[in-house]
């Protein structure tokens, strides 16, 4: 067996190796002085780290009462937020409607019907582009306007 890696030594020190891994490592350590020194070094490091960090340990001054918001408060908050979104959306829609109405020219008569057709009888043997088209527009007052092409 080749020399033991540092990560494996750490696992061994912390008792995280499987039984077969532990047996292999201990067999190797019996013959390899270098690895035995490394194990001892890492053991001291681990113990030193625990000792050093324990100096920073500060216990909490009792366990405070947890303030978990109750369900009704949360639901109320969600409802208020939802209402705010709906109101904002309604305002935007209203604004768009008002703007679009203003853009429409006031003097233009409302078109209520468009009738496309041909000025002469339609000849299926002729190309459509050669035949004159007529577009009849009827406005709200019943006035007919014809456009030729």
């Amino acid at each position: 067996m080749s020399c033991i890696k540092k990560g494996t030594i750490q696992k061994y020190i912390d008792g995280e190796c499987t039984l077969s891994e532990t047996v292999q490592i201990e067999r190797h350590l019996a013959d390899c002085k270098k690895c035995s020194v490394n194990v001892e070094y890492q053991r001291k490091l681990a113990s030193g780290l625990r000792k050093a960090l324990s100096l920073l340990s500060q216990e909490s001054k009792g366990i405070p009462i947890i303030n978990v918001p109750d369900k009704t408060a949360r639901t109320r908050l969600l409802t208020v937020r939802r209402l705010a979104y709906i109101l904002a959306a309604a305002c935007i829609i209203l604004f768009v409607v008002i703007i679009s109405q203003k853009k429409e020219p006031e003097n233009q008569a409302e078109i209520i019907m468009i009738e496309p057709g041909f000025a002469t009888e339609f000849d299926a043997n002729q190309p459509v582009s050669d035949q004159q088209m007529i577009m009849t527009i009827i406005d709200s007052e019943g006035k007919k306007t014809e456009y030729f092409e």
């Binding site: 540092k6 990560g7 750490q10 995280e16 001291k44 490091l45 030193g48 780290l49 050093a52």
Partner: peptide, 26 residues
């Protein structure tokens, strides 16, 4: 599988940093 390896590296970093500040970890 990486916990052991990362732990040993972290400890080495801590030891080095400690030494730089004039302390020994053990």
């Amino acid at each position: 599988a990486s916990v052991g390896k990362l732990l040993s590296r972290t400890m080495e970093k801590i030891e080095k940093e400690f030494k730089d500040q004039g302390y020994e970890l053990y």
